[in-house]
Simulated scan of single mutants.
Amino acid sequence: MTTPQHGSRHGVLQHAASASPLIAVSADVCELYKYLWHAAPQQYLEAALAGAGVFPLVVPSLGDRLDFDQLFAAVDGVMITGSGSNVHPSLYGGDASEANGPYDTARDSTTLPLIRKAIDHGVPLLAICRGLQEMNVALGGTLATEIQERPGTLDHRAPPSDSRDERFAICQTLMVKPGSYLSGVLGAVEIRVNSLHRQAVDRLGTQLEVVAVADDGIVEAVSVRDAPGFAVGVQWHPEYWVKSDEPSARIFRAFGDAVRARASTRIGLMRAAE
Rank of each mutant, 00 (worst) to 15 (best):
R107Q: 05
G101A: 08
H38C: 10
G63F: 13
E166R: 14
L196R: 05
E31S: 14
I218A: 08
V87D: 12
E149Q: 08
L125V: 15
D76W: 06
T265K: 14
A17Q: 08
V242F: 08
M1L: 01
L45R: 01
F255R: 03
S195K: 03
V242Q: 07
R65W: 14
I170Y: 01
L114W: 05
S244I: 08
A169G: 06
L45S: 00
L45Y: 03
Y240I: 00
Q133E: 15
A106E: 14
D67R: 07
P178K: 02
A212E: 05
G256D: 06
L32Q: 14
A272Y: 11
S195R: 02
V78Y: 08
Q199V: 02
G11L: 06
L132M: 15
F230W: 06
R253E: 11
G77I: 08
Q14D: 09
W236G: 01
L269S: 12
C129K: 05
V193A: 02
R192V: 04
V222K: 05
A249N: 09
L32F: 14
A24T: 11
G179I: 01
H237I: 04
D28V: 03
Q207N: 04
L36R: 14
S90C: 09
D28W: 01
L112T: 06
R130A: 10
R130C: 04
S109A: 15
A40Q: 03
E239R: 00
A261T: 13
G93H: 13
R192A: 13
V210E: 05
G229M: 00
L125R: 14
L57P: 00
P89W: 08
A99E: 15
H88V: 04
R250K: 15
R203S: 13
I147R: 03
D28R: 14
L132Q: 10
F68H: 08
S109F: 04
R150M: 06
Q235P: 05
H15Y: 12
Y181D: 00
E220M: 10
T153V: 15
F168D: 01
V213C: 11
L143S: 12
E190I: 04
D64R: 15
D67Q: 07
D216N: 09
V201E: 11
Y35C: 05
D202V: 03
S244G: 00
G94A: 06
A221H: 10
R65A: 15
L13Y: 03
S161W: 12
G233D: 12
P89I: 07
E209Q: 11
L71C: 09
Q42M: 08
P60S: 10
T2I: 13
A188R: 13
T142M: 06
V75H: 04
N136F: 07
